[in-house]
Amino acid sequence: MAFYLLAAFACVHNLLNPQNKGRSYGLLAALCALLLHGLWLFNTVVQVPGQNLSMLNVASVVSLIISALMTVLVTRFKVWLLMPLVYGFAGLLLAADVLLPGYYSMHLESRPEVLLHIGLGLMSYSLLVMASLLAILLGFLNHRLKTHKLTNLPAMPPLMTIERYLFRLIFVGVVVLTLSISTGLFFLQEMFSPGKAHKAILTILAWCVYVGLLWGHHRLGWRGRKVIWTSVAGSILLTLAYFGSRFVREVLLG
Results as ranks from 00 to 15, higher is better:
91 G>M: 09
94 L>C: 13
97 D>T: 14
98 V>K: 00
98 V>A: 03
98 V>W: 03
99 L>G: 01
99 L>S: 05
102 G>F: 04
104 Y>D: 15
105 S>D: 14
105 S>R: 06
110 S>N: 13
110 S>V: 15
110 S>E: 12
111 R>W: 05
114 V>A: 14
114 V>I: 14
115 L>V: 07
116 L>V: 03
116 L>I: 06
117 H>M: 14
117 H>G: 07
118 I>C: 04
118 I>K: 00
119 G>H: 03
122 L>T: 06
122 L>V: 14
122 L>A: 10
124 S>N: 03
125 Y>R: 03
125 Y>W: 00
128 L>V: 12
128 L>N: 06
131 A>S: 07
133 L>G: 04
135 A>S: 11
138 L>H: 05
138 L>D: 00
139 G>K: 04
140 F>G: 13
142 N>Q: 15
142 N>H: 11
144 R>P: 02
145 L>P: 02
145 L>D: 10
147 T>W: 01
148 H>A: 13
148 H>E: 15
149 K>P: 01
149 K>L: 15
150 L>E: 01
152 N>C: 07
152 N>H: 09
153 L>S: 05
154 P>K: 09
155 A>W: 06
156 M>Y: 01
157 P>H: 04
158 P>K: 08
159 L>M: 11
159 L>A: 05
160 M>H: 12
160 M>A: 12
161 T>N: 13
161 T>K: 12
161 T>I: 13
162 I>F: 13
163 E>H: 09
165 Y>H: 09
165 Y>W: 11
169 L>S: 10
170 I>T: 02
170 I>E: 13
172 V>R: 02
173 G>Y: 00
174 V>S: 01
174 V>N: 00
176 V>L: 01
177 L>S: 01
178 T>H: 05
178 T>M: 04
179 L>H: 02
179 L>T: 00
180 S>L: 02
182 S>A: 14
183 T>C: 08
184 G>H: 05
188 L>S: 10
188 L>R: 03
189 Q>D: 09
189 Q>L: 12
191 M>V: 15
193 S>N: 11
193 S>C: 04
195 G>A: 06
198 H>W: 07
199 K>F: 08
200 A>F: 01
203 T>I: 10
203 T>Y: 00
203 T>H: 01
206 A>Q: 02
208 C>G: 04
209 V>W: 14
209 V>E: 00
209 V>F: 10
210 Y>E: 04
211 V>W: 05
211 V>L: 14
212 G>K: 11
214 L>D: 11
215 W>D: 08
216 G>S: 11
217 H>Q: 14
218 H>V: 15
222 W>S: 08
222 W>I: 13
227 V>R: 03
229 W>A: 08
229 W>F: 15
231 S>C: 15
231 S>I: 06
231 S>P: 08
234 G>M: 14
237 L>R: 02
238 L>Y: 00
238 L>A: 05
